[in-house]
Design a protein around this nucleic acid. Structure first.
Lengths: 330, 330
DNA sequence: GCAGTTAATGAATCGCATG
DNA sequence: CCATGCGATTCATTAACTG
């Protein structure tokens, strides 16, 4: 028995020779290495072009389609001038239908193989999936990175309306984190979360100190007066989904909360670093990277995605360079 | 590329012909179908023997070794009579070292294939793993049950002493739930968890009701006066690990909290049902099943496990039948 | 201004109607 | 009869409004 399925990855190695054409240039701020780049077009070709440009990224966050076998739509709202009523229109944003799980994984494999090569040795990639595909994606990623490069399975726990089902409500997504080189000290900024209520009740808000007797045996810990920053952040994150009426909501489907991406960016990169998102969607990664003083490259083939992101970056006053993938004739 | 690894499962089909010998019989309580059964010996042979007996179980919970590549020890505490000091001794409990991940999965595959056949059509199996092996185990289980039988990835989130690492703290385990037959209405008892604070603040403790106007358009929801039981239980469970000094602690390694197993038992079985645990360990499943008025079968090959469980059941006044696997000469 | 109240609505799943 | 689609369900959350 082979585990599950066989992927044809022979095509994974063929490098395309597309180039990136600058539609609207933008000069980086003084002292910064380059501008934010928004790239419209196929991410596979774009990644090859970035390799040609010897781009080195510190963090990749990718939120690929989840193998839902559905087309996802963008919702636009408009107030009807005559009636004064809010009206909604729908436009297809991306197509998540696949012939098979194997074909889905094969396409993802190509992208992840290339992403890996763009990473700095201390960089990492974070792949956002859901618990119906996460296991297959993890096994596939172990092949790309090596199992020893697997760093974390992060669980994003959210709250939402209940579904009518004789099963436990599905209320989590999964983020797989891989390091490029496990021998390097990873680029990692320690974040903290609040102490558990039981800990605060017993120990207050100051650090505990483990104590040992003369035989090296553990004895009762002592309270210190040094304030505790909280407990080091775990791999289960409770962050709300974007509320239906929140200002943050763009109408782009599958939009992820800024709070989630912000945590990824803060923990896995430093200010000035380069962050890449090859499935940009509504542009959350670029918005967050800019706010956190990182430099961002975002890629998406959906014109709806590019439109939403452009608008969002402009609204925030984030300057960026707009580019386009140009396939090279063979 | 094949995904990860190839398992030799040809041996999985060979059914052994072991029998179960009753060491100490026990009559079931009146009106109950049979006694709790504690079976010492290899679980593979025991499962074959249970099949011979046409045993049908409603729920399987299994907590197999996690592929830690270590031997795990039981800690015994004793007060030294002369010095009055607490002294700890260690005895090997189980060996979790494997030649390869493939061999680990192959052994688990054999057990899970047999477990599946013992399940009632509306029954389910819950496999407790950790996030370093869960993905491979899920892919393997998809082969045994069929991917459409996968019901839930349950995340057990616990709190513990932080480790010093340049990574997110690992604070979760994974429980994979599979149904025997997805066309059957699953045996599932709806449990609830408290409403989110924001919901209570806005809506109070009563149910909301969606409203629609005459055109079928959504209008504002109304408050009802019917009290809400809470929100249907999700697939992320926050349950504390057993504290190092808790009464519940037996000294057996990898012991799981009763609260965790209780939730599994309450949600996935009814009173009077038969619950099976082929990696019994400290006996938590039998203790919880008995307390929840379910009937239990526990199997373990470790004499330390059997000893701990016997003591624990006796301390709780739970009567049980003690049996032993007797390999049949070929 | 601030706090408390009210309004608006996403989207998972089941069950039933429809083709 | 099987596939498809739509209606019903109902927490969770923030924005807007009100006193």
């Amino acid at each position: 028995m082979t585990l599950g399925l066989t992927l044809d990855t022979s095509a994974s190695q063929q490098i395309s020779s597309a180039t990136l054409e600058i539609i609207e240039p933008n000069d980086p701020a003084p002292g910064v290495e380059g501008p934010h780049r928004l790239i419209a077009g196929d991410n596979l070709a774009a990644l090859d072009a970035l390799r040609e440009q010897a781009v080195a990224v510190h963090l990749v966050y990718l939120d690929p389609p989840f193998y839902t076998q559905r087309v996802h739509h963008r919702t636009k709202r408009k107030r009807n001038q005559r009636t004064g009523r809010l009206e909604r229109s729908q436009a297809p944003a991306f197509d998540d239908r696949w012939p098979s799980l194997a074909s889905y994984l094969a396409e993802l494999h190509k992208r992840i193989s290339r992403l890996r090569e763009l990473l700095t040795p201390d960089g990492c990639a974070i792949i956002h999936v859901d618990p119906t595909t996460s296991h297959y994606v993890k096994v596939m990623c172990d092949q790309v990175f090596g199992p020893e490069c697997f760093a974390s399975e992060i669980v994003w726990r959210y709250r939402r309306w209940p579904a009518k089902t004789k099963n436990f409500q599905r209320v989590h997504d999964v983020l797989l984190r891989y390091q490029r080189d496990p021998k390097q000290t990873p680029r990692f900024e320690q974040l903290y979360e609040p102490l558990a209520p039981s800990t605060r009740a017993t120990w207050g808000d100051t650090k505990q100190l483990a104590d040992f007797d003369s035989d090296g045996r553990r004895i009762r810990s002592t309270r210190t007066s040094e304030p505790s920053p909280g407990t080091p952040l775990g791999d289960v994150w409770e962050i709300g989904v974007i509320a239906p009426v929140a200002k943050e909501r763009t109408g782009y489907p599958t939009q992820k909360p800024e709070a989630l991406v912000k945590r990824v960016v803060q923990a896995c990169s430093h200010p000035g670093d380069l962050v890449l998102d090859p499935y940009l969607g509504s542009g959350t990664t670029m918005v967050v990277a800019a706010a956190e003083k990182r430099r961002a490259i975002g890629i998406d083939c959906s014109s709806e995605a590019i439109e939403v992101t452009c608008k969002r970056l402009q609204d925030r006053g984030v300057p960026f360079q707009h580019e386009r993938v140009v396939p090279e004739p063979a």
